[in-house]
Write a protein that binds this DNA or RNA. Structure first.
Lengths: 212, 212
DNA sequence: CGGTGATTTGAATACGTTCAAAACTCGTGG
DNA sequence: CCACGAGTTTTGAACGTATTCAAATCACCG
């Protein structure tokens, strides 16, 4: 049975909040609800308005690798050529705007500004992917967790205070670790006085001097 | 001292061999010669005409992660926004065409076909990156090596016969392993009768039924 | 044919995983 | 308001895969 997003199509918004000639449809996705599946025809591209979206691939035996988390303002599904190469779903409740691909292409051929914006977003996604590749291939468990927190702090943190919307399993599947290892790294950082956990989902960094 | 590529600027070629309104300069790079460095202003984008190019990031302590190998026909440096996010250099001797970014952008705004081509190439690069992320984060050493060989076979192989232009260290730095582990996996595959090594750089796959 | 860099192989080690169980959190209903 | 319960997180101990260090062998270029 396919779940239809609540309030689907109730509002229209401009891409990046500035391309008013290109309107998208807003949908509200429930926790764990799928936005698109790997291999489906790539009909649209998306912008996160609220909440968090995860993008991942699965192996046949169930192993999962999360390629990226997307937050407010991020564009995803941009890696489209013909078909989506990942599955995307909502981490918690998420508000997402969708833009039909053909309309985006048409609008981009009319507007140099939009074309540049799309280019920059695609470049940003590739940048992130390459940082992620470095992290996955060459960093230790501690470095991975540190890097993750630094990234989260940069993107959503306020003065070193980070709210983690995802579970330890999500973080582990993003970092190529197990949830136990993620938990141990966080505990160790706390023991070393480098952070403070208030509940499992609230982190306060001691040294905000963490860079990607 | 900066080495200048041999025969720099001796010829001009069209991007993808089909956009004749956009001409690039051909340079021949010597083995290990740098094409661009991480952090440099992204002035141009490149197409491999001959040979192999590797794209990588380094950590301060010298650990290296190769993000991609590029072969004939591949476009790289496309992840540019302002500055290159990786370093690119020649694996062996490589012939590379460079195209100034401003000219590409200008030409793309005139030609829908070129714009689509660039879009498709960017999407392809992101696709590759996401497959690589899955491989690095969730596959075992054996699966990584198998996946690498399958990929190489698909891109450069002729009926299961693969020529490896790069060293075991390059492969290891691509797969997030050590060169010893790569060597052991290849030996084990040979012992299991799944491939045949003629010298270290020539591989014959038994079952070409390997998919990415 | 010699020499240098690349590759293979071996043995000990270490890091992260696996399996197991306890502790914690948070939403729900009594 | 507190108790309950399911899901999440933490912690512990044993294990396994890939790494590290070391040495031998191979292959290619001059």
């Amino acid at each position: 049975m396919i779940t239809i997003p609540k309030n689907s199509g109730t509002k229209a918004v401009a891409l990046f909040g500035r391309h008013h000639d290109l309107l998208g449809v807003v949908s509200i996705y429930q926790p764990d609800q799928e936005i698109y599946g790997e291999g489906e025809p790539a009909k649209a591209l998306f912008e996160v308005l609220r909440g968090v979206v995860r993008k991942y691939k699965l192996l046949e035996d169930g192993r999962r690798q999360i390629a990226a988390f997307h937050f407010k303002g991020d564009v995803f599904g941009l890696e489209l050529d013909e078909r989506y190469s990942t599955t995307a779903d909502a981490v918690g409740t998420a508000h997402v705007a969708s833009f039909r691909r053909d309309k985006v292409v048409a609008a981009a051929s009319q507007s140099l500004e939009l074309a540049r914006d799309l280019w920059a977003r695609a470049a940003l996604n590739l940048d992130h992917a390459q940082c992620h590749i470095l992290l996955l291939g060459r960093k230790t468990a501690m470095e991975k967790v540190e890097g993750f927190l630094a990234d989260m702090n940069q993107r959503t943190g306020r003065a070193g205070r980070i709210n983690l919307p995802m579970t330890r399993l999500d973080i582990a599947d993003f970092l190529g670790l197990t949830l136990e290892t993620v938990s141990r790294c966080l505990s160790r950082m706390q023991d070393d006085g480098r952070l403070c956990l208030s509940g499992a989902r609230k982190v306060a960094l001691r040294q905000s001097t963490m860079v990607c």
